[in-house]
Computed example of a mutant assay.
Amino acid sequence: MTGTITGADGRTRFQTTVARVTGHQLFWPVVALVVLLLACGIVSPGFLDVTVRDGHLFGQPVDILRQSATPLLLAIGMCLVIATGGIDLSVGAVMAISLAVSLTYIAESGTGSNLSTALTGLFLGLVVALAIGVFNGFLVTVLGIQPFIATLILMIAGRGIAMLVTKGQITTVTSPPFKSIGSGFVLGIPTPVIIAGGVFVLVALLVRRTALGMLLESIGINREASRLAGVKSRNITWFVYILCGLLAGLAGIVYGAPTMAADSNNIGLMKELDAIMVVVLGGTKLDGGKFSLAGTIVGALILTTLERAVVIFHLPTQVTPLFKALVLIVVCVAGSERLRGKLKIRRTSRPVVAAEVAA
Rank of each mutant, 00 (worst) to 15 (best):
S102M: 11
T22F: 14
F58Y: 13
S68R: 01
F27N: 14
A107W: 08
S102Y: 05
P177E: 07
L33T: 11
V34K: 01
Y105G: 11
V91H: 00
P176Y: 08
T191Y: 09
E224G: 03
F313I: 12
E108W: 09
S183V: 12
N235G: 15
N265W: 01
G144F: 01
Y241L: 07
K179Y: 11
G198I: 12
R13I: 13
P316D: 08
G283R: 10
G10I: 13
T2H: 08
L72F: 01
L293S: 08
A309V: 04
A355K: 14
V203D: 03
L328S: 05
A275Y: 00
L99F: 06
I153D: 00
P321S: 11
V201P: 09
T284C: 03
V94I: 15
R209A: 09
N266P: 01
A32L: 03
R234Y: 00
V101M: 08
P29W: 02
P45L: 04
V18F: 11
T117A: 12
L216K: 08
G92H: 08
L315C: 05
V327W: 06
V21C: 06
I5R: 15
I236G: 04
K285V: 10
I297W: 02
A93W: 05
V31G: 01
G198Y: 06
L164R: 09
M95P: 03
A294G: 15
I253A: 00
G341M: 06
T317D: 11
D88G: 04
T317I: 15
G137P: 09
A257D: 06
V240M: 07
R20S: 13
A19F: 00
Q146T: 12
T117P: 05
V91S: 00
L328N: 08
T296R: 03
T6D: 13
V254T: 05
A354V: 14
C79G: 02
G41D: 10
A262E: 04
K232H: 11
G249F: 03
A83F: 02
S109G: 11
V199Y: 01
V81M: 06
L65Q: 02
T320W: 04
T320P: 02
L216I: 10
P61R: 09
I145H: 02
G133P: 08
P316Q: 14
L343Q: 11
T304V: 15
L103P: 01
L293E: 05
K290S: 08
I297V: 15
S175Q: 11
I82D: 00
F200T: 11
L322D: 07
G283D: 05
V128R: 04
C332E: 01
K342T: 10
M214S: 13
T70N: 02
R159V: 05
G220N: 07
V35C: 12
I82G: 06
Q25C: 00
